[in-house]
Computed example of a mutant assay.
Amino acid sequence: MNTRTTPSTDLAATRRRLWEALRARDEASATAAVLDAHDEGASAEDLLLDVIGPVQARLGGEWAVGRIGVAQEHAATAIQDRVVAALAHRAPAPAAGPGDSPGPGGSPRRVTVACVDGEWHALPARLLAEVLRGRGFHVDYLGAHVPTPHLIAHLHQTGTDVVALSSSLPVRLPTAHAAVTAVQAVGLPVLVGGAAFGPDGRYARLLGADGWAPDARAAADLVAEGPRRAAEPRTDPVGGLSHLSDQEYTLVTRARPQLVRQVLKGLDDTVPAMASYDDRQRERTAEDIAHIVDFLAASLYADDAELFTGFVTWTAGILRARGVAGDALVAALDLLADAQRDFPRTRAHLAAGRAALVRVPRPSAPGPRS
């Protein structure tokens, strides 16, 4: 099992230096921050997972509260990706020999690392791929948004021993399920990771994955344990998720465009502030409603109302940062519930979301900022 060897104080200083470079969109300084630390003895794995990874998480947090825009976050992420590449060239994967190879017979195992179809947050998968390379594995890194048929075609053409799939958003759980099932059908074990699968991996177990890891170090340790026999493919039409037989997930997904229009129209009648919205504000409101429907559908797929309540309470915080009253979000859930009278599971998830929202304390008046 791999443990961190670089002093935490040194890593903290490198994180601060990298963060300031990214804020300034200074790629040269960002690269120097990481490579200088490597020259001073920090391991590549520590820099990937204890510097670049946490800084990326901070970028997401700053975007969420509105302190940076989408374009700035994308620019910083692109710099981070090139910093990873620079570090990979500086610290190539060690040559594996009979004494230290992770695979049987002195031959390193081949791992395919990919994001599930529709998942564009690729950096977590990229970090895992580089950690695995650093530990001596042969890695095929396929990047973001890999359609399942293309993934399976790749597996047929290569000598892959194990597949690692990454997803950050729970709305990708249905496509992740399809990918897990397809990989297992060709006889390969599949490990999954990322925020989409829950902080405790509950959705990984639900979808029948052969393993789940909370972070890249744990994922690399799982791979090092050796390929496992893939789970027996499920033959029932809903892949072991008996709750899907009520068709609520399918019907809500199909009705998504209609639901967005219906809720947007209803908000015009129930939220007076909507009357003064410009075109851009209305567009963002429609996007927010679409996200609500998407996460509602994902919670129905997983049959877990907590997935939905977690999203709506997070959304409430984002809307507060934009200056949008929380009453608009409650109204949107009520309108969705009115439109889903015949769907008991859907209404139960919406009711749980509404109850979670009314328990969220209203923010106090902001004090002076330090």
Rank of each mutant, 00 (worst) to 15 (best):
T285Y: 00
D221R: 12
S242K: 03
V180N: 01
I318F: 10
Q281S: 12
A182Q: 09
Q80M: 14
T6D: 04
R282T: 04
A176I: 05
A144N: 04
D327V: 13
S107V: 15
T315D: 15
R90C: 06
V293E: 04
G239P: 02
L173A: 11
A302I: 02
P104W: 04
L48M: 10
V70Y: 01
R284H: 08
A273Y: 06
D26I: 10
L142P: 11
R322H: 10
W63F: 11
P102F: 03
I79Q: 07
V223W: 06
A209Y: 05
D81A: 15
K265D: 15
A218H: 13
A93C: 11
T9H: 12
V34F: 03
A290K: 09
V171Q: 09
L127T: 03
L127E: 09
A356D: 10
L300D: 09
G240Q: 03
G193W: 05
A339H: 09
L207I: 12
T346I: 01
A153L: 06
N2H: 14
T77F: 02
D26F: 13
A57E: 14
I79K: 02
L48G: 10
R254K: 10
V65R: 15
R67F: 04
V70G: 06
W314C: 01
A93L: 09
G317Y: 08
A351N: 05
A32K: 07
L206F: 01
P54H: 05
V260E: 11
L49I: 13
R126C: 03
L300N: 00
V330P: 00
A348C: 03
L267F: 06
H38M: 06
F295M: 15
R256P: 02
A275L: 11
G66P: 05
D117M: 08
A129G: 12
E225L: 15
A275E: 13
A216P: 12
P174Y: 06
P102M: 03
W212R: 06
L169V: 11
V190W: 09
R4Y: 09
L259V: 08
V223M: 03
V252E: 07
A352I: 01
E248V: 04
G208E: 05
D342N: 13
V131M: 12
L47W: 02
R58M: 11
A273N: 06
V192D: 10
A57R: 12
A331L: 05
D36L: 09
G201T: 07
L49K: 00
H154I: 00
V190C: 13
A298L: 01
P272R: 07
G97A: 09
L49A: 08
L336M: 13
L35W: 05
G41P: 11
A220V: 12
R347L: 05
T9L: 13
